[in-house]
Design a protein around this nucleic acid. Structure first.
Lengths: 108, 108
DNA sequence: TTTTTGAGCAATCAAATAGTTGCATATATA
DNA sequence: TATATATGCAACTATTTGATTGCTCAAAAA
């Protein structure tokens, strides 16, 4: 309905990052999660909704409880972006290396 | 002045992520950067301000131009968080491994 | 069956965000 | 010196966000 959700936007909020870490340890219900924060259950539920929209978490209904699981795979998207950055950085230093090499041989 | 800036909040915006990648290749002026986007120079300048506030970029005045450099070091903060997550994940699987080991030895 | 509990959904609100336009200023260039 | 250019800064606006409150519904417990 709203704007397309994005992993980077999802981890922008500190509460959501904390939720991610908690869910990394074990699946939890919204109520159980809310106990760890100052915010209300509804607020936590909204964060979970954001995390679910970008598929960082998955729901598993168990009776009246809903257990939220982390989808660790999705975290790879962040790694992928960092990797792209790292490669560009390496190439930049590679070019610098080439330039320094050039200077060195000219000196001779 | 405003809310304390955060690296995660800074990379939440796609335009800012693109700026980071461009600056990874080489330092650029706001005008040069703006040419790569649909948004105005002022919009880009605002993004640069956000990036500067959390020290992801640094300014270098050169006459009337200001060259923006990436502070690659700051990107490590993101890596650090991912690493924390990775460790928790490894521990979780570590526990799972222990449980599976347990089951195995009981079977014998 | 009646009551309690776990959750989602909708409406509302204040604060933050991304973007625009207009203006001021300092440095180049003609 | 007069003009053009590169930026930053301020005011304003529309949209998004995070959070609250009140409600409904289904499952579990008394």
């Amino acid at each position: 309905m709203e704007t397309r959700r994005d992993v980077f936007q999802a981890i922008a909020d500190p509460t959501r990052r904390a939720i991610i870490l908690l869910l990394t340890v074990s699946a939890m219900t919204p109520n159980a999660l809310a106990e760890h924060f100052n915010s209300s259950r509804q607020a936590v539920s909204k964060h979970l909704q954001v995390l679910a929209e970008c598929e960082l978490v998955q729901q598993e209904q168990r009776g009246r409880e809903i257990h939220y699981h982390l989808n660790a795979q999705k975290m790879l998207e962040i790694e992928k972006w960092l990797e792209q950055f790292r490669q560009l950085l390496a190439r930049r230093f590679g070019q610098l290396d080439a330039v320094l090499q050039q200077l060195k041989s000219n000196k001779k």
